[in-house]
């Protein structure tokens, strides 16, 4: 899964913080960024964010070189 996504993002102090994102025509508020990490590939640096919104977990990917956001994983937190 790698779905392009609109993400309202705060760029501050050299840091990136996703605030809201729009998915399936719904605006979802990010309640908790549980984890973030970086990887590098042929496109340069990728920033990964594990976030919780409502009762769902989302894995958001920010490709720095293209300034684009993608959704790569969704799952319910109600295991």
């Amino acid at each position: 899964m790698k779905e392009p996504l609109y993400v309202i993002t705060l760029f501050s102090d050299g840091k990136i913080k996703p605030i809201y994102f729009i998915w399936n025509n719904r605006r979802l508020k990010i309640e908790n960024i549980t984890y973030n990490w970086r990887t590098v590939d042929e496109n340069g640096i990728n920033q990964h964010f594990s976030v919780i919104s409502g009762s769902f977990y989302y894995h958001l990917l920010f490709v720095t070189s293209m300034s684009r956001w993608y959704l790569t994983e969704v799952e319910s937190t109600l295991a």
Partner: peptide
Amino acid sequence: SVELASKPYF
């Protein structure tokens, strides 16, 4: 531990 930090609900 890394996975649990990402997905604390587990």
